[in-house]
């Protein structure tokens, strides 16, 4: 009987350790200061959907004072706190003005909003989503929060399909954003159609100054991510003379695992080179 009790005790310890190992990863991201957070929903008549928006304001925000730059974050619900907290820290660390972080939540399927062409049942809505950002969201943000309206003061940050959308915005409406943080972009989409769009619009986009940070996980070995990523990087490097360009491969990390580290590195790059 004693022996059985000892065995059960050991197994209990093993089970507890297994549980502890996996529960440790569920630590919540530190929440951004609620006093500096604004939330609202924006109805888009053109798309026919409502998008939840979260806005993180700088400490010294004043609606009639300094005009701040803006970072528009796709997949905003997941990444809002990380981006907002990181921007606050980097602003203090580098002694530069903070930014207004605008996270765009989901109004409809992200694969619809973030993909540039119809290549399946729920894809191809990026052109109208980009128009929504340009004509409905950005004017509201810049009016309500007195944000800087210059192209070079706007950043778009996206991961995966969000990174694809950022590359799409770069190619087809380069006047909207001057800074792009593209993380694990799904450039393979529809036979690399976004690379083709870049090529078609290259002449019109080469003149403007750009800042582009590209990040990916080194363990993204699904047979579609790395080669288009490298091809796109080489295209930007070789054809855009007035561009601040950087890329980062996160060692041993995969598609989702590399996301947070690349967000932080992308924001570092932006704050250092803006």
């Amino acid at each position: 009987m004693e022996k059985q009790k000892a065995i059960i005790l050991k197994l209990g310890v093993i089970a507890f350790l297994c549980q502890a190992v996996f529960y440790l990863n569920s630590c919540e991201e530190a929440k951004f200061d609620p006093a500096l957070t604004r939330t609202f929903t924006i109805e888009s008549p053109s798309i026919g959907a409502s998008y939840p928006i979260q806005v993180a304001l700088p400490d010294n925000f004043n609606s009639v004072g300094e005009k701040f730059s803006t970072i528009y974050v796709l997949d905003g619900k997941q990444d809002f706190n990380l981006v907002a907290n990181t921007c606050k820290n980097l602003s203090e660390r580098y002694g530069v003005p903070n930014v207004i972080v605008v996270s765009i939540g989901y109004g409809r399927d992200r694969s619809m909003d973030y993909t540039p062409t119809k290549s399946g049942s729920s894809t191809g809505g990026a052109p109208e989503f980009l128009k929504f950002i340009e004509n409905e969201l950005i004017p509201k943000i810049e009016q309500d929060f007195n944000a800087d309206t210059a192209r070079e003061s706007r950043v778009i940050l996206g991961h995966s399909y969000g990174g694809l959308f950022a590359a799409f915005a770069f190619a087809v409406n380069n006047n909207l954003f001057g800074n792009y943080i593209m993380l694990s972009p799904s450039l393979w989409f529809d036979n690399e159609v976004t690379l083709l769009m870049e090529k078609q619009n290259r002449n019109g986009n080469q003149e403007a100054h750009q800042l582009v940070f590209m990040g990916i996980g080194e363990a993204e070995n699904s047979g579609r991510m790395q080669a288009p990523f490298e091809a796109y990087y080489q295209i930007l490097r070789d054809h855009y003379s007035d561009m601040s360009l950087s890329k980062n491969r996160e060692h041993d990390l995969s598609h989702m695992g590399s996301k947070d580290p690349n967000i932080v590195k992308g924001l570092h790059y932006y704050f250092q080179n803006r």
């Binding site: 190992v21 440790l24 990863n25 990380l82 041993d252 989702m256 695992g257």
Partner: peptide
């Protein structure tokens, strides 16, 4: 596998490198 260490973010999907 417990490497890369799963604590990479607030979203459980962030551990996909291990889970997969």
């Amino acid at each position: 596998p417990l490497y890369p260490w799963p604590v990479k973010g607030s979203d459980i999907d962030y551990i996909d490198g291990n889970r997969d």
